[in-house]
Design a protein around this nucleic acid. Structure first.
Lengths: 349, 349
DNA sequence: TCCAAGAATGTGTGCGCTAACAATTCGTCA
DNA sequence: TGACGAATTGTTAGCGCACACATTCTTGGA
């Protein structure tokens, strides 16, 4: 293909008139290289357009500067953002990121992804795969593979970085209750997701704490606008529902749409609150009150945690610290989709 | 850290009672290995939990099985999907994918990303960075780096895989014209994006072909719902506008919202068509008629193109073929957001 | 029975780099 | 001026694997 082979360290050494080891020293910022020598070497490097061979370095040092990311579906807003945050942070530490997407979330796929990444020789892995099954499978991974789970809820055996789902759900639920709603219905995410479970728990806890009745949560949704829509049609027919907390924004969108089609007004007839604060929620009809989670930050924090475990000699971070769970507080973004109920049935203020 | 070192080929060889070379043969599916020997080797591999050292293999073979992806913003729907498609396809060919996200799109960032990837020794690069600036910068990359641009419009000097933006825009525009609109307004994407340019060209061509007046396109938007919203407020005040073709779905969402707030009904008063067909468009209010592009497929095709250039010996694909541009036809997805104009001002059918 | 051709396996070497150690140079103080 | 220690540079030996070649073992036909 290409005429001549890429220059190697020996070539640089010859041109600079030094030994290859000196070149290595310059490239790795070792002390005890005379300034003049260093400059000669760097000049030679530039002249040749030399670039070190990563594989050779890896082989010699027995350590890679690449990290793996396993992601269930990078197409979803949250995972996509987290991936972005991870990559950003990795760059700062001078690590590469290789991704392994898994199509389905059975144990096998997940373990398979772990395997592929290990074959490539990654130094550690961040998992964006918030399902219970995935987490279960991950528990079987040999402990010599540094592993951090991100956005997967906090109740896992793994080192994890996550938003505080329960607190977020509590925020949303309390907000609706404060508005004067007698109770708040909940459009569940898929129960196989830890986030969904935790949000449900937070919702339930908030209700119970306030002594509000706890209605049966609306189950069977899968995070998509489509299932939100389907539930919305049913809710529209139920005059008892005045407030709905949706486990994510996509479903809220579908719900909003169904209610609108059925002639139920939001927020006048029914208040809706979502979760995630994806970029477009502000422009839903009406703009959606939702719980914001900073996915970017989540990704970054996950990477930091991983680096900390891997132990980056260049950053002076000890390879020791054990920090099982990092929890990031979410915040409520108030927009137009929720308000006080029109016909207050009790407790007039 | 871990007590003993990972097993190497020699360990396997010893246990299986063969030479390391035979182990290598088994692992690389070479012919001329007796079945019994192969089994002994594989048993030893399993027993030891041996996994080949990728770095060593790379060093010895002088070729990596990793590909790089440069992406401007994996947070957007399109790029996220393409990345997913790329990873999927890469896995089939047994390649790894490492991502390099760039925050801004100046030449420097892009070239920087290329550099990082080359340092890591990737065999080739897929670029998801549809801006003119990026493409310009890429033209400077040494030609010995296999490079494929994806979703960046077709008018580039690079090997590219893209949806046919002009055809898609034509589809949308003609559809609105066929409905009876006198003309179609266009909410432009950012002019620095090739997709935006091509969509504008397609819109303009369709209009001219039909002899319809060509209004000044609505400029200054940036793909986000926010700018779509801003333009929407202005459009709402303009009774002359009966049909709008938006350069993407996000902007269409903002537009829809603004129109609704202003009391203009869609599609009765104004018809709207988008571009992309992202997952939620069906649940916009009203559900959006849009031009679908199959991002996933785009990503997969890009990867195939790259593999073809890189030349994968294991797949029997020759390292020769030059295929500058691959264009994928888009399709129109008809939903509720567009209809015939209410007050037809001319050409009664 | 023997030999040639081919199948099956083993041996040696180098990929490009870093780590450990050896050798050299330099400065400085007695 | 000489010598000693620190700073600087060079030398050697792998890291784990695949390739080229050498060697041994099977066949099958004369």
């Amino acid at each position: 293909m290409d005429g001549e082979r890429a220059p190697v360290m020996a070539d640089v050494a010859r041109i600079a008139g030094v030994s290859h080891q000196t070149v290595s020293r310059v490239l790795n910022d070792h002390p005890n290289v005379r300034d003049r020598t260093r400059e000669r070497v760097l000049a030679a490097v530039r002249e040749l357009g030399y670039r070190p061979n990563a594989a050779a370095r890896t082989l010699a040092t027995r350590r890679t500067r690449t990290l793996g990311v396993i992601s269930f579906n990078t197409t979803l807003y949250g995972p996509a953002c987290m991936l972005y945050g991870i990559e950003q942070a990795a760059r700062e530490y001078d690590y590469f990121v290789t991704v392994a997407a898994v199509g389905t979330l059975d144990r096998r796929s997940v373990l398979d992804a772990v395997d592929r990444l290990r074959n490539q020789g990654v130094a550690g892995i961040v998992v964006i795969a918030p399902q219970t099954a995935a987490v279960g499978a991950l528990a079987n991974v040999p402990k010599d593979v540094p592993l951090v789970a991100v956005g997967c809820g906090a109740h896992t055996a793994l080192v994890s970085v996550a938003v505080d789902n329960e607190a977020g759900a509590g925020l949303a639920t309390s907000y609706l209750l404060d508005l004067g709603h007698r109770t708040v219905h909940h459009l569940l995410g898929p129960r196989t997701w830890l986030d969904a479970q935790e949000r449900e728990a937070g919702w339930r806890a908030a209700l119970e704490k306030r002594g509000a009745p706890v209605p049966e949560p609306l189950a069977g949704a899968d995070w998509t606008a489509r299932t939100g829509y389907e539930h919305g049609r049913r809710i529209a027919d139920d005059p008892g529902v005045t407030a709905v907390f949706c486990a994510n924004d996509h479903m809220a969108l579908g719900l909003l749409r169904a209610l609108q089609q059925a002639g139920r007004r939001v927020p006048e007839d029914i208040s809706v609150v979502g979760f995630d604060d994806m970029a477009e929620t502000e422009y839903f009809g009406p703009s959606l009150t939702t719980v914001r989670q900073d996915f970017d930050e989540l990704g970054r924090r996950a990477l930091h945690a991983l680096i900390e475990i891997v132990g980056d000699p260049d950053s002076g971070i000890p390879a020791s610290g054990r920090r099982p769970h990092i929890v990031i507080p979410p915040s409520l973004v108030v927009r137009a989709s929720a308000t006080r109920p029109r016909h207050r049935t009790e407790s007039p203020t």
